[in-house]
């Protein structure tokens, strides 16, 4: 698969009179390949938006190399800009313009046929409200308009920064369906979001950033698998007794009033057989899989630990990144 976005060693420091020097991105790497729906996760202030802005030529990086659709950014960005649709943070529009006029002016400026305007308004569910002024729009509608503006170019690469901001549950679902349909149509999507469950539902790949550095990346399933502690929730009639049985068998067990949590067992048969041999019958045996939220919080929570980069997809390491085996790295964190 060809690389659509390549970022290596991106570094950006902001200097302001009020806040002094602030490192926003510190040697960040990213690889997004064609056809992926790639989630971009990180806490507030971790450098997501700065990275996207640098990639789109809005911020000048201090160091690093970036390529978009094979073109060096920002030098050759104009060569591929017509194939990249993007929204960065919550774009503002002129309140007195209608959505239709807003998009028509963008289409005109970008040399896109204005017939696309109605198509994208339809795509984002704003066709019936397209002739209303933007000032009457809810936050969610403005967000849809922003996505519509990104879709105008019929892009090969779509970069969406927090597209679900302000959307109600139905809107989030529509946005998810839209993203999926675009991905099915062959559009590569880079999606930055705080809604981790959404990322897990939509994205096939993910990059997690903390303090301006990449701390995890790869296919979502593999990232999650890397954090799988092989835990099982076991329900029995007497959890206390079952805990003693499993403990004597050398398993790691935590006893709760109405269930047990067994850790570090790959095959559930080990649990049921051990209990069965002692006459304890299992009522329920459920695997406890990590979700993206728990992984995200473990990697980025509180910013208190020094984030250790990890690679889980076997992709070649990028410059400046220490690649560790998942298990080893988890032990490091532990």
């Amino acid at each position: 698969m060809s690389a659509v976005i390549e970022i290596a060693g991106l570094r950006k420091t902001f200097h302001t009179l009020r806040h002094g020097r602030r490192v926003a991105v510190d040697g960040f790497d990213m690889l997004v390949e064609a056809g992926q729906v790639h989630g971009f996760l990180g806490p507030n202030g971790s450098g997501k938006t700065t990275t996207l802005r640098a990639l789109l030529g809005l911020v000048r990086p201090d160091a690093g190399r970036m390529r978009v659709l094979g073109a060096d950014s920002p030098e050759h960005l104009p060569d591929v800009a017509g194939r990249v649709g993007a929204i960065v943070e919550s774009p503002q529009f002129f309140a007195n313009f209608t959505a239709h006029r807003t998009l028509r002016l963008l289409a005109l400026a970008g040399g896109v046929p204005t017939a696309r305007v109605d198509e994208v308004l339809e795509q984002v569910g704003l066709r019936d409200r397209g002739d209303e002024r933007v000032k009457g729009y809810s936050l969610g509608m403005k967000q849809r308009l922003a996505v519509a503006s990104a879709l105008l170019k019929n892009p090969e690469l779509l970069i969406l920064d927090e597209p679900a901001n302000g959307l109600d549950p139905a809107g989030i679902r529509e946005m998810r369906d839209l993203t999926r349909s675009l991905a099915e149509a062959g559009v590569t999507v880079l999606l930055s979001s705080h809604i981790l469950a959404e990322i897990q539902l939509i994205c096939d790949h993910v990059t997690i950033v903390s303090r301006g550095r990449r701390v995890a990346y790869g296919p979502v399933e593999e990232v999650l698998a890397g954090f799988d502690q092989h835990q099982w929730r076991v329900r029995v009639a007497d959890p206390e007794q079952a805990g003693q049985v499993l403990g004597r068998a050398g398993l790691s067990v935590a006893v709760a009033p109405d269930h047990l949590v067994v850790t570090g067992v790959e095959d559930p048969e080990t649990i049921s057989r051990t209990l069965g041999e002692q006459g304890v019958w299992v009522r329920e045996l459920v695997p406890l899989r990590p979700d993206l939220e728990s992984v995200f919080l473990e990697l980025t929570g509180g910013h208190e630990h020094v984030a250790v980069p990890r690679q889980v997809d076997g992709a070649p390491p990028s410059d400046g990144v220490i690649d560790l085996d998942v298990r080893e790295s988890r032990e490091v964190d532990a």
């Binding site: 789109l56 030529g57 809005l58 920002p74 960005l77 104009p78 800009a81 990249v84 993007a86 960065v88 774009p91 503002q92 529009f93 002129f94 963008l106 400026a109 970008g110 503006s149 170019k153």
Partner: peptide, 13 residues
């Protein structure tokens, strides 16, 4: 308002 940013996403010159 971000109008210039919008425009630069279309015309990054």
């Amino acid at each position: 308002s971000g109008g210039v940013v919008n425009l630069l996403l279309w015309r990054p010159r």
